[in-house]
């Protein structure tokens, strides 16, 4: 797993993010989120609010966003909870970025199913473009992270870039996607296998075939 560390608390950081506040649109959203939880349990909103804040930072920096210390303090204050508890949540979940990310946050899954289906090659392809694990490329275009299973094993190997998944990848397909992104175009998301829609079995079902046409009851056949 990539090394994660909270971005240093510096005067510059404070100057940039010290007066973070919800954008006009997020004011209402944050209220709505807190409203989902019972009275006195507003702390439960910490996860969606951190995510909202990360998005807002992302919108301001034209990236996926991340969570500077002053922003986490803002959330703690907003929910009236100790900031160390906010920090615990933010550092626990890897979907919160603790340091600035580049224009595209490339998260390659390296867990067993993806690895068996060639994620090592994808990682190599990323390295050829100058990406390094846990780092942002000097041009600010890429942040590269190797992650654990993203739940797309049926269409492995896969890569998540900002908020989109790209599945059934080969080195060529990944290269195409990255080229498109560099060119400012939005490549097709999801599976890259021609003819495949989502994660349905390639070449038709091989199990539970009787279920394809009607609701077949298999229970009598177990034994």
């Amino acid at each position: 797993m990539a090394e994660r560390a909270i971005a240093q608390d510096t005067p510059e950081l404070r100057a940039r993010w010290g007066n973070f506040a919800w954008s006009a649109e997020n004011v209402a959203k944050a209220k709505e989120i807190v409203g989902r939880y019972p009275e006195g349990r507003s702390r439960s909103a910490v996860m969606p609010l951190l995510f909202l804040a990360q998005y807002q930072v992302g919108a301001e920096t034209n990236t996926q966003g991340w969570l500077p210390i002053p922003v986490m303090e803002f959330i703690a204050d907003y929910l009236g909870m100790p900031v160390i508890r906010v920090l615990e949540v933010a550092t626990f979940y890897t979907m919160y970025n603790l340091a600035p990310v580049g224009r595209y946050h490339v998260q390659v899954c390296g867990t067993t199913p993806c690895m068996l289906r060639g994620s090592d090659d994808l990682i190599e392809a990323c390295y050829r473009r100058g990406m390094r694990k846990g780092h942002t490329s000097p041009d600010g275009l890429w942040t590269f992270t190797e992650v654990e299973c993203m739940g797309n094993c049926a269409s492995a190997p896969m890569v998540q870039i900002n908020d989109d998944n790209y599945e059934d990848l080969t080195v060529e397909r990944l290269d195409h996607i990255l080229n498109e992104l560099v060119a400012g175009r939005q490549p097709k998301t999801g599976t890259q296998e021609p003819g495949r829609h989502t994660v349905e079995p390639i070449g038709g079902p091989t199990t539970l075939t009787d279920m394809v046409s009607d609701n077949h009851d298999y229970r009598g056949e177990w034994g």
Partner: peptide, 11 residues
Amino acid sequence: DEIGALYRGED
């Protein structure tokens, strides 16, 4: 609340 456990797992 001054002490906390940051990060996860063996980290």
